[in-house]
Computed example of a mutant assay.
Amino acid sequence: MIDRGRTVRRPWTAAALVVTLAAAVLTVPTPARAAVSRADLALRWAPIHHQDVDVTGSHALAGRSDYITSVDFDGDLNGRNNWDRAAAPDVSFAAHAYYSVLETATHWYLTYFFFHPRDWTDHPFFETEHENDGEGVLFVVERDGSTYGTLRAAVTVAHSDFYSYTPAGSTWTSGRESIDGTLNFQTSPHDPHRHPVTGQEAKGHGLKAHPQYGIVGDGIVYYPSTVAETPEHADDRDVRYRLVDIFAPGGLWAQRANPNLFAHLGAFAGDTSGGCGTGTWACSVNSANAPWGWDDGDDLPARGEIATDPAKLSTEYFAIPGGLSRTYTHNPYASEAAALAEAARTAPPVVD
């Protein structure tokens, strides 16, 4: 007799259990791949960096004047004592580089900034030196659906000139500016990725794609990392540098109005104290730039736009199949775009 008030449960068989579990597994939704973080993007595309080093002359500090470091390497944010403090035995030359990531629907724009306490020379004729030095590179990465995208182009800063590069096989070609060379890649011993390779000259620290600038004699090879190592000597070929977000709370962008660090728009405060210019042609003041002060005066983009509006600069420098979006989905500079534009228009020129 069947009890109409109860559900009759048949005993499970092994075969039925397997089929049921398989169906359950198949119906579990696959989690969406998490979007890559800006810090991970910056680490992925950060350059392997070849820094030439000169150890001659008293201003070289046995090579330390060519080491990359942080703007507060001496424990403060006073730009006017960096030349002086670079000679102190208690300061840190742990390797750092600053980065920013801007986004549109079609591309990521990654800017890297390398800081030196001195731009120096070792002879008295025609060349000047100055306190602080800041040069760097912009990488443009296409958002092609892969985790880290595809690097399409680079623009480097060498004093008051920009130089443009594309990797082998890039679909980007010359725009208003001619392409100056090929951006090469190298595998890092500290991660599984092939990174773009850049180089800086000694003394003046102009930056280009390697090997247009590279190590001649002594030099440091810096590898991107999350730790900051200090070179053991002036010819150390494996030093890791730590990436620091320009937009971090209390970071470089947050200090943009600090008069001890910046004299005016993006120009580091620097003076002639501590022996800058001694035995040389001259020592200039307030002569180094943060990324929002970088400028190539002969080119159409305005001062700082290599960092603050890199989509605009890209359309000027390159011919881009399919074009690109000019609408930013992430650009912390944008909130002060009008003020930056006005400051760029009225600020005195800075010649690095």
Rank of each mutant, 00 (worst) to 15 (best):
A94R: 15
G217Q: 10
H205L: 07
A95W: 10
L138Y: 00
F162C: 01
T147Q: 15
P211D: 03
T156I: 03
F185W: 08
I220P: 13
F114R: 02
V157M: 15
Q200K: 15
R152C: 05
I215L: 09
Y109C: 09
V197M: 14
Y223T: 08
D161T: 14
T187F: 03
I179F: 04
K203T: 12
G145C: 05
L207Q: 11
R118C: 10
S188R: 12
V221G: 02
P189K: 02
V221A: 06
F115V: 00
G217V: 06
E229N: 06
H116N: 13
H123M: 05
E177M: 08
V141G: 03
G145H: 05
G136N: 04
H123Q: 15
W108G: 03
S100P: 01
S178F: 01
W172S: 00
E129N: 10
E131R: 02
H107R: 11
H159Y: 12
H210I: 01
L110W: 05
G181D: 08
I215A: 09
E201N: 11
E103N: 12
T147H: 07
V221Y: 07
Q212W: 05
F125A: 13
R176Q: 14
P211F: 00
W172E: 01
E129I: 04
Q186R: 15
A209I: 03
N132Y: 04
T171H: 04
E127P: 00
Q212I: 12
T226Y: 05
T156P: 02
G181M: 02
E131A: 05
G199I: 08
P189A: 04
Q212D: 14
T150C: 01
T166Y: 01
T150Q: 13
G204C: 00
S100Y: 04
G134Y: 06
E103G: 03
Q200H: 12
D161A: 14
T198S: 07
T166H: 03
V227E: 09
A168C: 00
K208D: 13
Y112N: 09
V216G: 14
V141C: 04
P192D: 13
F162K: 00
S225V: 05
S188P: 13
P192T: 11
Y98L: 11
G206D: 07
D180V: 02
T111P: 00
Y223D: 08
N184H: 07
T156Q: 06
W108I: 03
Y99M: 10
S160W: 04
Q186E: 15
V140I: 15
T173Y: 04
W120K: 03
N184S: 14
T150H: 08
E129D: 12
A209N: 09
A95I: 07
K203P: 01
K208L: 15
D161V: 10
T128E: 10
L207D: 11
T106F: 08
R143V: 01
H193L: 04
H190C: 03
N132G: 09
A154W: 00
G206V: 04
H190G: 03
